[in-house]
Design a protein around this nucleic acid. Sequence first.
DNA 1: TTTCTACGTGACCGGCCGGTCACCTCCGCT
DNA 2: AGCGGAGGTGACCGGCCGGTCACGTAGAAA
Lengths: 224, 224
Amino acid sequence: MNAPSRRERERQMRRQAMLAAALAVFAEKGFDGATVDEIAERAEFGKGTIYNYFPDGKDALFLALLDELVVGGLHRVIRDSFPDADELSTPAGARTAFHRLIRSLVEHHRDEDDALLMFLKEGHRMAFDAGKSALLAEHFNAVFDALVVPIEAAIASGALRPMPARPVAHLLMGNVRGYLMAELDARCDPSATLPAAPYGTPADAADFITTALFDGLLASDSKA
Amino acid sequence: MNAPSRRERERQMRRQAMLAAALAVFAEKGFDGATVDEIAERAEFGKGTIYNYFPDGKDALFLALLDELVVGGLHRVIRDSFPDADELSTPAGARTAFHRLIRSLVEHHRDEDDALLMFLKEGHRMAFDAGKSALLAEHFNAVFDALVVPIEAAIASGALRPMPARPVAHLLMGNVRGYLMAELDARCDPSATLPAAPYGTPADAADFITTALFDGLLASDSKA
DNA sequence: TTTCTACGTGACCGGCCGGTCACCTCCGCT
DNA sequence: AGCGGAGGTGACCGGCCGGTCACGTAGAAA
């Protein structure tokens, strides 16, 4: 069925190599600090070749890369973390499921430092330059949709407190992001002041976030 | 006692005008997108004058501005939100105190759109370029110290769950930041997809964050 | 072997921007 | 009024970078 010619396969490989190089450079220098020359050099192509594959240049590279990371990264992790809808029908089950999600997200970003760094430095462009790429905006919303569904299910079953689901989804992702940023900060500068976050196993990180966010910061013996 | 000459007062006024202009431009364009020419124009000075007041140019403007916002903004809001240490000795009191803090932070940023926007777009530089200004790093840490103290007090009194205090402080600030970003996003593009956060009164925002973070997302009747 | 096409290449261009500095104005002093 | 200097000014410079395009090449077709 799909018989991509060798030509086509090679074209895809090169495209991927360019995106990989772009990721490394964007993560290190940020969008404005990155130069197309450096991306081309890292990918071992001439600058002109980059423009063959991405006629709109730096912007196109950036958007394509974000899209790939969002769809192939975040979305996949979230989807795979809720294999069983029934699990969400009890508080303990919901806690387990979201703990697993958070842990997967942390593990995912441990493997992909550069992706994390790029999200931290340039993620705000997804919010403020949403008009740049309707496709990216759509994919980005799909990620949150994938998270809103289980949250709503857990709320409907009484496992989670009744709250607007989409803001809760953003809250959750924001917490993971915030924690990873603090961790990275501590890791980059271990000699510095007291750490903003301990750098432990992904399970430790997930414990911390899940406890704070799901059990709450207030002492548990005070809950109604 | 302090009798600043008219000269000195005028100098301070001009400095402030430059910082105000810089804030507006940084917030709109980001650090890299901002030009010294535009800052000078907004402040109604010649470009050279900027360099009289900030010999290190754009970097110096940026760092001085961040420092002012951190010290005069965040730090002050946090300090003023914990007038009474005794309040932190009960869970209900602690909840009230932190709710007040969160509300103050939201209100503060409602008044200072530009400061928020700049923090959202360029805040990562404070973490990754910490070496740029030892003074800023110190002031930044002082902000978290001011937050760690009441958190530790509340933990010591049993009002809050025992957890490492500094990471909790970062978690808290990260949640406020995340919520405000979601709100801003929704406000900029009201026609868009479902809102990431409702845009209500500061009290509503504080209710949402406090409930999620302090009471926990799990349904309350399931707590131990 | 010859030809032709697709495509990789990097020198080059034009605009932009951070930073400088010679000039000039304005104010205070005599 | 005349003088001097503190300091504001913006034209200018040099480097940088995104994007282009005429050229070269390699590989397919004949």
